[in-house]
Every structure is written in structure tokens, then in C-alpha cells.
Amino acid sequence: MSTKADEVQLLGCVRVNDTVSRLGGDEFVMVLSDIDCGSELEGVLRRVLSSLSEPVALQDGAVANVTVSIGVAIFPDDSAEKGILMRKADHAMYVAKSLGKGRVVLAQEDDAAAELQTGSPC
């Protein structure tokens, strides 16, 4: 799947007032504005995991299984500075990858990270 197709899929998972942007390679940033940090955020994250984890049919007829790792940093809880938010989200994403992909990990204080469990991430 192309990164443009990934971006279109991500846009289908968020609300109209949210922003999806490709950073480079296969990394994207989603800015979810004015979102409830409970079930609303959890719902968006689960839609993203589900949507991007669907098998992808390739041109030659083969099927590719894709996994997604998501790192989350929340403004202003994790930081009010965009560079720090990005670093924390990036760190959380790499923790998600190390846990076996197909995961959502929330940034925590002191660069720790915690996998999203059912319930409020904020």
C-alpha cells in the first residue's frame, strides 16, 4: 500500500477538525484537537489500529499483512512544547514496536511509556 493510501485511510479514522500528515517514510502524525481523553480518543486509536491492520491486496494478487505501532503524547499533559510532544510520541511509538507491533503506547513522565489499556488514557 502506498503512503498516500495510508493517509487516506487515516483520514477516514479521524474527525473533520483533526489533521493527518505524513512525516516521512511510513510515519504519520495525527493532531486530534479538542478530543475527550477517554472513550473518544480510545475510539479513534482503535479505528486507526483496525483500519491500517487490514490485509492489503497487492498488484500481483498476493496479500500483505500490515502491522501498526502508535505512540501517543497529549497536549498539555505531556508537554506544551511541540518538539517535546513529538519526541515523547516518537519514543512511545518505538516502545510499541518493541512490544510486538499492533499496539498503542502512551507517553509517560520521564520518557517512560505505558501500553493503552481499556479506560481513560488521560
Results as ranks from 00 to 15, higher is better:
Leu85His: 03
Lys101Thr: 07
Glu40Tyr: 09
Glu115Ile: 10
Arg22Ile: 09
Ala62Gln: 14
Val8Gly: 00
Lys88Pro: 03
Ser79Gly: 01
Val44Tyr: 08
Ala107Tyr: 06
Asp34Phe: 04
Gly12Asn: 13
Lys97Met: 06
Phe28Ala: 12
Ile84Leu: 07
Ala96Ile: 09
Pro55Lys: 01
Val44Ser: 05
Ala96Lys: 04
Leu45Cys: 13
Ala89Glu: 07
Lys88Asp: 04
Ser33Met: 12
Tyr94Arg: 10
Asp6Pro: 00
Ala62His: 13
Ser98Arg: 15
Leu10Ala: 01
Thr3Glu: 13
Ala89Val: 11
Leu85Ile: 05
Gly71Leu: 07
Val48Glu: 03
Leu49Trp: 06
Asp111Phe: 12
Cys37Pro: 10
Leu32Gln: 07
Gly25His: 07
Phe75Ser: 09
Asp18Lys: 05
Ser51Met: 10
Ala89Tyr: 07
Lys88Cys: 00
Ser2Thr: 15
Lys101Trp: 05
Asp110Trp: 00
Gln9Phe: 05
Val95Leu: 11
Ala5His: 07
Leu85Tyr: 06
Cys13Asp: 07
Asp110Gly: 00
Asp18Leu: 09
Val104Arg: 02
Thr67Arg: 11
Leu99Asn: 10
Ala64Ser: 12
Thr3Tyr: 08
Val63Lys: 03
Cys37His: 14
Tyr94Met: 08
Ser2Phe: 00
Lys88Ala: 04
Glu54Gly: 00
Asp110Arg: 04
Leu11Arg: 15
Asn17Cys: 11
Tyr94Trp: 11
Gln9His: 03
Leu32Gly: 10
Asp60Trp: 02
Asn17His: 14
Ser39Met: 11
Arg15Glu: 12
Asp6Cys: 12
Glu40Ala: 15
Leu58Asn: 12
Val8Trp: 02
